[in-house]
Design a protein around this nucleic acid. Structure first.
Lengths: 193, 193, 193, 193
DNA sequence: AATGAATGAGGGTTCATTCAT
DNA sequence: TATGAATGAACCCTCATTCAT
């Protein structure tokens, strides 16, 4: 299973072969059919596990709503960090989108995971507004999506970005600068006057 | 060639077959070898064309540096609009990153295209600082990357996002709201106090 | 066992899988190995059961030899009816012949079943000759085989015949007409002057 | 193609493997996909060729309608001989019926071949009636089907029949006796009182 | 009597690519 | 420029069968 996640993430759905996966799992290809039924079913299982893990991670966030700004910073760091720590998450989402979300559509479990983080964002913004730290009228979804975009984009395109920018973007310094910039930008964009 | 772009974008590198491409081009598979030599060479050609076209589009931007804020808005709209109008750009970049940028590395031409838009951003920010409209100390790369991230993320994940959010994100209203939010956020983040 | 008969009859020996059979029997594949040892052994068992049942059915025939013509008609109806009621008999015999009778050869029991009906036919013909109703010199085997051929052929080729003749041959009317024709023909062919 | 006919006839549809066929044709399996597209399409092609050949053979029959009885004998010999000379015809028809005629249904060409021999039988019977040699009221289809049944059954079940009867039925003597019996029976059944 | 796990051997099919013409 | 034929290497998946429990 971990092997499958890795292989699908590395080669994409089409590029991943049942054989690559099974030998990565120190098993043989037929066992995949025994346990999962098909390559596609395995992919769905991998995706579900992926979503479940992110859901868990978000559920484990324990942010102090009485300190909305500090908590928002923590949330941003969490999101950026999650993408960074899970490059396979990015790649697999890309694969799934390449297939037009057809696997997520087949999964019942997947429907149960909405994005908890959006609810969290919403509560933080509301608390911030109450404390006059955050301007009203913001849409939590938008705020969250911009944060996610920042984390996602940086990982998803790390190879082509490095090539185009002419310098590596995965050094600790580059990463820290980017994180700081994202945090700063988001805060400036939500703060009240 | 247009056919190849479409097919690679739709199925990914591994999922696209030489036959799908050639029949989409109303030709036969062997002609691809005649003209391009191999599937990989064709993919590189497709990527190069992709970069060249974006380069052209950015080169065609004619922004008024004396109006930095308005021009920045225009630039943001351009970037968001470009991704939106070219979903294959997003998908192909994903493919290329899946392959760890190994094709871009093989291309000589690709090196010539740095991201003009970063230079443009830089000039606009500088002009803005000069007019005291923009706060100093900003890194044009960061500013540009955040804009690109917003455009890219929204397209790249349109299927999974729709599924997770429980509503379509490709309606004109949803798109307009997102664009407005991005513009607003970026402006707030760069404006001088 | 009944499940195996059905599945072998429907898909042929090669087309029938141990799994199809076992799930048709609401069991699991490994139980077949537990009880029969192998797919081939199961097939032999199925064939043996098939022969035994036909043998039983023929043994149950109680024909009045003092009325040879009427009894012959009854016999013909029995044979035609048996094939009709047991399409799997036809299909399985076909399978067995496809395998050149190699399973029947392995079976000890099968040898015990000769075709009782031939003996019956023989007795009826002899009685008929004695009563001057039937011409002498007939070979009971030939008579019986022609009857069997009529029954067998009609069932064995019901799909292709329907296609070639351009009309269904399994309607009650078509069947009744065929049965009557066969009876009439056989009687005409055996009757004395 | 000849190889495919042989292999399908010998092993049945499921039992025949693309590999067996291709190596019987001194080729490799992939060429079958190049020329026919799939195993099933090849099977359909084989069946079509089979029907076409029988159609040709029947078309080549040149029977003298002015001598209806002699011609009918000739027709019977032809039918019995055709099955005998083409055991693969029998086996392939069995395969096709096992699949419920689903391949014949897919074939356009196959529809064009009705059974010419039935027309021939009809004309011979009509001529015979006109000459008062044949009794009226006979259905040419029935007459033909009984002849075909005799030829078919004897070939289709040659292995199991030999086993059950306890003697070989494919010796020249056995065959000649059967043919004579069939001819005699059919003539007796159609002759006018 | 029953079950989970495993395995060797294919089986149909596809794909990128080459070659001769 | 274009086409028919061919080929090595996989690829996804199935099947009969075995083994340990």
């Amino acid at each position: 299973m971990r092997a499958a996640t890795k292989v699908f993430a590395r080669y994409g759905y089409a590029g991943a072969t049942v054989d690559k996966i099974s030998s990565a799992a120190k098993s043989v290809d037929r066992m995949i059919y025994y346990y999962f039924g098909s390559k596609e079913a395995l992919f769905v299982a991998v995706l579900e596990r992926l979503y479940a893990r992110m859901d868990e991670a978000e559920a484990a966030l324990d942010l102090d709503e009485s300190q909305p700004i500090e908590s928002l910073v923590e949330l941003i760091r969490f999101v950026l960090g999650y993408y960074r720590a899970h490059p396979e998450f990015v790649t697999l989402l890309n694969s799934e989108n390449l297939h037009r979300g057809q696997h997520i559509a087949k999964s019942r479990k997947a429907r149960d995971y909405s994005l908890r983080a959006i609810g969290i964002t919403d509560r933080l913004l509301t608390a911030g507004v109450a404390q006059k730290l955050v301007r009203p009228g913001l849409n939590a979804r938008h705020v969250y999506l911009l944060i996610a975009a920042a984390g996602y984009f940086y990982m998803a395109n790390r190879y082509t970005l490095s090539a185009f920018l002419g310098e590596r973007i995965d050094t600790p310094e580059a990463i820290a600068a980017w994180d700081d910039y994202v945090i700063d930008s988001v805060l400036r964009s939500v703060r009240s006057a």
